[in-house]
Write a protein that binds this DNA or RNA. Structure first.
Length: 868
RNA sequence: GGGCGUGUAGCUCAGGUGGUUAGAGCGUUACGUUGACAUCGUAAAGGUCGCAGGUUCGAGUCCUGCCACGCCCACCA
């Protein structure tokens, strides 16, 4: 397709027009298509982060994704076939939460499917959420994510990311589900995944298990309650300080440090739990700290991870009183673990908290303790940190349930090895990975009691009484994938046998979203054309540092367990965008500076410039002024190009493709030597993953071009003998648009397309080779000449400015001190100096010296600018 | 408590292997507008390079200690 009807430069820079033109052109010409015929060595594979589609795009996304795009574009210009897929991570809890709020619905898996239900967006709906079936809920999730994904795609296209959109995937797509389920089956076959019933960290709001990596600590206000316990069969008492009095009925035992003299005498005896009169043993335990609280504590099922750890070795029964919804469940005080010495009293007190939330139960128990006289003094306030699910609002509880776990604890050393083989940029980010891996203390819980995600490809036999046999799951065969055990039937059964004795049930859980996202390289390859030379390890994984312990860690784990390989050779860690107060930028403020607003205000190229200015791994404060600076650069590029094109149009070389042969002038060659150096250094910086330096170098040289070189050759370019100057300007412009192309793909493409010396082979600047030494062969010489001329001109300008005179004020005379060798060269090329400095005939006196100096500049003080 | 990072001009940031008067952009001030410039250019002011020691002929750069800030992890009755 033709890039533009009329290839003349526009009068003014119009970012939106150029952006729309480029996007349509790139799309039509498939500029960024992955070349499947390239060999693996000639392919650059990127494991792109699939953004979570659960709301709006944040400026932080634009920041880091653009940095990756710059790298991709450089690699493409270096001759690589770039495998640059994009996907949307749409499965998982964030999506469910957004869907619940957006449509004001909630999933109730017990309801039947309603084919007529259509979700409608509800703005600030205060009414109770409408309950819908699992299938209706999943459909609502699909509907909203598709809408969100279109918006994401528009923004990513507008900012000029060079993905191959034909490789687009979503993590909830049947194909991704297939890859993810296959991964599960492979791990099962390798005995790396198990289902066990055990106390697990549990979010009561989302009613789901969570993994260690999704947990964060938060400082909350709590109260120490001092509670008096009586030793059974004696008058002795002791005080326990606890922040969780509501767990009193779940108390299993009392423990103190074995070395604690105060309590040694109690070991072997029993204590009476107040209010419930349950007799519990008093035991020594290493994890009890003499100096904390009163030195003696209760172990409950389950107050925290220490309780879980201790319980595992204790042989004592579980007393679970907190249900999956965070409310107190019913228990029997007559028999079993809750047996009370005074069942009526226990039942009466327990009835008062049954069904309550943890918070309500805490208050009720507090009041009961006070009434009972077991409470000593007033509760004491304390700030302590408590574990939360990162997306939750209530503290995590430990709830015993059956969950699938990937056995990562036994892989710690191999995980450390694998991490070590990967090149971390910046290097110190490896420490985060290392520390997290070393500190791992639980296997990876991958089951979630949610709905919108990848189902486990698993069913269970039901025995004659209808009880499931979890130890011998029925696995889907690979040919069946993707499979939903809640609607698909296992091989060898018919649907009639579902939920019937001697029949089967489906596993109703779904997988942790990371269980699928950790397969992004495999998913991307699955979506690629068949029989292409793609394989692990990919070349790079770009990502931010907050998800090293999740995305990076889990992806490394999967590649290791499945293929015994590292997933990528290099991981590039981007920094964060911070608020001006240096906190991580909040979503609320993100509303003010949405990516699209910024693009419209400053242009895509300018926003990209802003992203490119930041170094990898470094958090930076958001500063919009950098986009303003970027826009100035883009406008300058546009204007300089227009100027050069106008000069070329008036020359003999207007459509001369082989213009380079006309470059003969010493000063032009000296300038080109500077430019060639810049290209070489920019390339070096790129190869070092330092795109920011590449931009700095290019930008500096470009302003030098505008401020100095263009001014120097202007007169000569308009003169009769102008071929060398014009050709040099052509080469300079061609070089600059290639150097800037990875950063500013729009303006550079625009200039590339409207050049008069473009021919049929010139498809796109983004298909051109990045400038190297060969581009300047035999065209560079004596760069020192250029430096000297620029210095001389600077001195002349300074003299004029200091005299408060216009720059076109004529110079009557000046003395140039320079070396013997340079003197001849300057003399030979002095026309340019005379032109730009407005120096009168025979005004320059050369004096041989050790180094350059300019002295005794005499201005024509009678000169008056015409305008005044 | 452990680990990592950062601290350079009013602001945002650059400153391989230690080497002459420490840089850029923005902002401020003054002047100008030269054949492209929704402007652009020229120039000026502005820094005890967090603090204190040490190594060295020489330290923003290397070493030690301290301070401040940020992030990650662990503990948390």
């Amino acid at each position: 397709m033709a890039y533009k009807e009329n290839n003349l430069p526009d009068n003014q820079y119009n970012s939106e027009e150029i952006e729309n033109r480029c996007i349509a052109f790139w799309d039509a010409e498939n500029i960024y298509a992955y070349d499947k015929n390239a060999s693996r060595e000639n392919t650059f594979c990127i494991d792109t982060p699939p953004p979570t589609v659960s709301g709006s795009l944040h400026i932080g996304h634009i920041f880091s994704f653009t940095q990756t795009d710059i790298t991709a574009r450089f690699q493409r210009m270096s001759g690589k076939s770039v495998f640059y897929p994009i996907g949307w991570d749409d499965n998982g809890l964030p999506t469910e939460r957004r869907v619940q709020n957006y449509y004001n619905i909630a999933c109730n898996p017990n309801l039947p499917y309603d084919p007529d239900f259509k979700p409608v967006h509800k703005e600030k709906d205060e009414t109770k959420r409408k309950e819908v079936s699992r299938k209706n809920f999943i459909e609502a999730c699909q509907m909203l994510t598709q809408e969100d994904e279109q918006i994401f795609e528009q923004v990513f296209r507008r900012i000029g990311h060079s993905y191959d959109w034909s490789l687009k995937y979503t993590t909830i797509s049947p194909e991704a589900i297939k890859v993810s389920q296959k991964s599960f089956l492979d791990l099962y076959a390798k005995n790396k995944v198990v289902s066990i019933e055990a106390p697990t960290m549990w979010d009561v709001t989302f009613k789901s298990a969570v993994a260690q990596a999704e947990v964060e600590d938060r400082e909350v206000e709590g109260f120490f309650h001092d509670i008096k316990f009586q030793v059974q069969g004696s008058d002795e008492t002791f005080i326990i300080s606890t922040t969780r009095p509501e767990l009193l009925p779940a108390c299993l035992a009392i423990v103190a440090n074995p070395e604690d003299e105060r309590y040694k005498k109690l070991f072997g005896k029993n204590a009476i739990v107040p209010l419930f009169d349950i007799s519990v043993p008093i035991l020594p335990a290493e994890h009890a700290d003499k100096d904390k609280g009163t030195g003696i504590m209760m172990v409950c099922t389950f107050g925290d991870a220490a309780d879980v750890a201790w319980w595992k070795n204790s042989g004592l029964p579980i007393k679970q009183i907190i249900g999956i919804d965070g409310r107190i469940i019913d228990v029997d005080y007559g028999v079993g673990p809750f047996s009370s010495l005074n069942p009526d009293k226990a039942k009466e007190n327990f009835a008062k908290i049954k069904g309550m939330t943890v918070k309500q139960a805490k208050e009720t128990i507090f009041a009961l303790l006070r009434q009972d006289g077991a409470l000593q003094g007033e509760p004491r306030k304390r700030i302590h940190s408590v574990k939360f699910y990162e997306k939750g609002s209530l503290p995590l509880e430990f709830v015993s349930s059956r969950q699938w776990f990937i056995k990562l604890l036994e892989e710690k050393n191999r995980m450390l090895d694998a991490g070590n083989k990967i090149n971390w940029v910046p290097e110190h980010m490896y420490h985060r990975y290392e520390e997290w891996t070393k500190g791992l203390n639980q296997d990876w819980c991958i089951s979630r009691q949610r709905f919108f995600g990848v189902p486990f490809p698993v069913w269970y036999h039901l025995d004659e009484k209808g009880n499931p046999d979890y130890n011998n799951p029925i696995l889907a065969s690979e040919k069946q994938l993707p499979v939903d055990p809640m609607s698909d039937t296992p091989i060898g059964f018919n649907e009639e046998q579902r939920n019937k004795p001697n029949g089967f049930i489906g596993d109703c859980d779904i997988m942790d979203t990371w269980a699928t996202s950790s397969l992004t390289p495999q998913i991307a390859m699955y979506f690629a054309p068949k029989n292409v030379p793609l394989a692990l390890p990919f070349d790079i994984r770009p990502q931010a540092h907050d998800i090293i312990r999740t995305w990076a860690f889990y992806t490394i784990a999967k590649a290791l367990l499945h293929e015994n390989k590292i997933p990528w050779k290099k991981i590039l860690i981007s920094g964060f965008i911070l608020d001006p107060d240096r906190k991580k930028m909040s979503k609320s403020k993100g509303n003010v500076v949405t990516p699209l607003n910024l693009i419209e205000k400053h242009s895509s190229d300018a926003v990209r410039y802003w992203a490119a200015k930041a170094r990898l791994g470094i958090d930076t404060a958001f500063e919009e002024q950098i986009m303003t600076q970027g826009r100035k650069l883009v406008v300058k590029l546009f204007n300089a190009a227009k100027f050069v094109l106008a000069i070329v149009a008036n020359s003999n070389l207007a459509s001369e493709k082989n213009y380079k042969t006309y470059i003969k002038n010493d000063l032009d060659k000296a300038w080109l030597a500077k430019l060639a150096n810049t290209a070489k250094n920019a390339q070096k910086a790129f190869l070092n993953d330092d795109y920011a330096s590449a931009l700095d170098l290019t930008e500096t040289r470009f302003w030098d071009f505008c401020d100095n070189y263009l001014e120097i050759v202007k007169k000569r370019a308009y003169s009769q003998d102008n071929n060398s100057a014009v050709a040099s300007l052509m080469l300079s412009l061609d070089t600059f648009i290639k150097l800037f192309a990875p950063f500013c793909p729009f303006i550079t493409e625009e200039i590339y397309q409207i050049r008069s010396w473009k021919d049929k082979q010139d498809i796109s600047v983004h298909k051109e080779a990045f400038p190297d030494d060969a581009s300047f062969e035999n065209l560079v010489d004596n760069e020192q000449l250029y430096d000297e001329v620029v210095n001389i001109i600077a001195e002349i300008r300074k003299a004029k400015t200091n005299a408060n005179k216009p720059l076109k004020t004529p110079v009557k005379s000046l003395q140039i001190y320079t070396t013997e060798a340079m003197k001849d060269l300057l003399l030979k090329n002095q026309t340019d100096i005379i032109n730009v400095g407005q120096i009168e005939n025979n005004g320059i006196i050369y004096i041989v010296a050790d180094k350059l100096d300019v002295k005794n500049i005499v201005l024509d003080m009678n000169f008056i600018s015409e305008k005044k």
